[in-house]
Write a protein that binds this DNA or RNA. Structure first.
Lengths: 287, 287
DNA sequence: CGTATAATGAAATAAATCATTCATATAGTA
DNA sequence: TACTATATGAATGATTTATTTCATTATACG
C-alpha cells in the first residue's frame, strides 16, 4: 500500500525546517486536530495568531497546491478517525493484529468509566468532597500498584490545601496514623487484590474516631466495610494488570470538586499557578 | 439549558412535511453523516441529484439562516461524535447537583479515551511494544505530576521483565542515563506543561544511540520530536488538573501487550509472585 | 381534464474565501 | 553594528461558493 502522507506526517517530516510562524500553525493543527479541518484560512490564521498569507504558504510548504487541498486532507483524515472509533463498537476484528490489544484495553477502560459513572453514588461523592475540604490534615494510604494513585492524589491535594501526606510504605504507618484526631482524614486506596495494610489503616483510624474515606472497586470490598465514606470505581481488565483508569478519573473529579468548593481559599493560589504556567508555556488559546 | 437541535433531529421532526427533493437531501445526509459536513452546497446538490437552490431552501426549511449555518451545525455534530459517547447523553440530567462535577469530569475522560483511540497509530504502538520487549534495560523518566504514571509503568514492567528503573528526580539522571547502551531503552513520560528535564533525557539518550520511547499528549509535543517512537494520549480536562486517565489506559495496553508477547516467561514469573504474596500475607485473603 | 399552486433547477448575483502582491519586520551573518 | 536574506501580514485581486431570481415542471384539486 502507498505510504500514507497525511498532514500530520508531513508536519512531522518538515518540522525541522519550519519558521517561527509556521511552527505556530503546525502546533495548532496538531493540538486541535478536530477543529482545524473546519476552519477557513483566515480563521486558522487568526487562532494561530499569524497572517493569512502565512497559512496559505504553510500549505504550499507542506507540498499541497494550496490551502484548500490541505484542508481536504485534514478532513479526510478526520473522517478516517471517526470511522475508526465507530467501527470499534461493532467489531474488534477489523483492527490490524499488532495494535489489537490496544483497542481491546482502551475499549475496556471505556466500559470501566461508563460503569463507574452509572454506579456513582451522588451523596457519597458529595460527602467525600466535604470531608476533604473540611479536614485539618489528610493522610493518603496506598500500597503497591495503588501507589501511583495515592501519589497523584497527594500531589494535587497538596497543591490545593497544603495539608496532605502520603503513606507509601508500612514501616511508620501506625506511628503516623496515631497522631491524627477527629478533625483529620485518612484516605485509603485499595483494589483487588486488596493489600491487608490498607484495610488495617482504615480500621485503626475508624476505631480512633479519625475520619475515613476509601476508594475501592466495589461495595463488597473490605475497604468499603471499614471506611466511613467510600467511593467505587471499576478496575477490571482482561489482563494481569488492574486498570486504574476509572479510579484515576474519579480522583480527577474529586480534585476538581474540591478545587471549586473551596473557592476563596484556593482560587488565588490556582490563579497564580495558571499565570505561572501561561508565562512559561507556549500554549495556544482554546479555540 | 436549551434543547440540542442538531440537524438530524430537525430532519426527523420535519420529515413528514418534506417534498420529494427534500427527502432526497435528507436521506443523503442521514446516510453519509461524515461526508455531508464537508460538501459545498453545489456538491451536495449534485450527489443528492437535486438542484443547488433546493439544497439552500432545505437548510432554510429546517430553520437555519442558510446553507452555511446548516453546514456549521453538521460540522459541530461531527466533532462531537468523535468525543462524546451517545449513550450517556441522557444521564447528564439524572445526576444531582452535588455530583455534577463528577459527571462532567468522568464524561470528559471518556472523551479523552475516545480521542486517544482515534489518534492511535497502530505501527507506533507495535514498535513500542517491540522495543520494550527486546530492551536489555529500561529507564523510565517522569517528573512532577507525571510521576504517578512513571511509577505505575515501572512497577509493572519490573513485575514482567525485572529490568526497569525509575528516574523520578533529576539529580542523578544523567549519570544513570550515561550507563545505557544501544540495546537499552529510555521511556519518557511528559504532558503539558512539559518538564524540560524529560525532554533533555530523551535527546541526551537519542544522541547516544540509546533507544527512546515517549508517552505524551500530542504530535506537537516536544517529547514527540525527540523520541524515536512516541505514543499519544489526550489529557485535556476543564479543570486545573491534567487528566492522566487516557495515558494510564495506554500504559495498560502497553503492559498487556508486552505481557502477552512474552507469555511463557512472564506466566511463570507471575505464578511465582502469587505464591510469594500468599506466603507473606501482603494481600487481603479472598473471601 | 384544466387550472392554480407549489416545487424545482439553471443561471445570474452576492458573499465568502483563497491566493498574490508588496511594503515592513525579523533573523542571520559578516 | 550594518547589511542581506528571509519571513511576515495587511491590502488587493482572483476564485470559489452561497443565495436569489425566474422560467419551467410537477402536483393537487375541483
Amino acid at each position: 500500500m502507498e505510504e500514507k502522507e497525511d498532514v500530520f506526517r508531513r508536519i512531522r517530516n518538515k518540522s525541522a525546517e519550519m519558521s517561527k510562524a509556521q511552527k505556530k500553525i503546525a502546533l495548532f493543527i496538531e493540538r486541535y486536530p478536530d477543529t482545524a479541518p473546519f476552519l477557513t484560512a483566515a480563521k486558522l490564521a487568526e487562532t494561530a495568531e499569524v497572517g493569512e498569507a502565512t497559512v496559505v504558504r504553510f500549505a504550499v510548504f507542506l507540498g499541497y497546491s494550496g490551502y484548500s487541498e490541505m484542508q481536504r486532507s485534514l478532513q479526510e483524515r478526520m473522517r478516517e478517525r471517526l470511522t475508526t472509533v465507530d467501527r470499534l463498537e461493532l467489531s474488534e476484528d477489523v483492527y490490524p493484529e499488532e495494535s489489537h490489544v490496544a483497542y481491546e484495553v482502551l475499549n475496556d477502560d471505556l466500559s470501566n468509566l461508563k460503569q463507574t459513572m452509572s454506579m456513582m453514588n451522588a451523596s457519597s461523592f458529595a460527602e467525600a468532597v466535604d470531608r476533604i475540604t473540611r479536614a485539618r490534615r489528610i493522610q493518603v494510604v496506598a500500597f503497591r500498584s495503588s501507589h501511583a494513585l495515592g501519589y497523584f492524589l497527594t500531589f494535587y491535594l497538596n497543591l490545593l490545601l497544603q495539608n496532605t501526606q502520603f503513606i507509601a510504605n508500612s514501616d511508620t504507618m501506625f506511628e503516623r496514623l496515631s497522631t491524627l484526631g477527629r478533625e483529620d482524614l485518612v484516605i485509603g486506596i485499595g483494589f483487588p487484590r486488596y493489600t491487608a495494610r490498607t484495610v488495617q489503616a482504615l480500621s485503626f483510624s475508624r476505631i480512633r474516631n479519625v475520619q475515613t474515606l476509601a476508594l475501592t472497586d466495589s461495595n463488597g470490598s473490605p475497604l468499603a466495610r471499614e471506611a466511613g465514606t467510600y467511593l467505587v470505581a471499576s478496575s477490571r481488565l482482561p489482563s494481569f494488570v488492574d486498570s486504574f483508569t476509572a479510579p484515576l478519573s474519579l480522583i480527577n473529579a474529586l480534585l476538581t470538586a474540591v478545587g471549586r468548593n473551596s473557592k476563596p481559599k484556593v482560587a488565588r493560589r490556582l490563579r497564580d499557578m495558571e499565570q505561572l504556567w501561561d508565562q512559561e508555556g507556549i500554549y495556544f488559546p482554546e479555540p
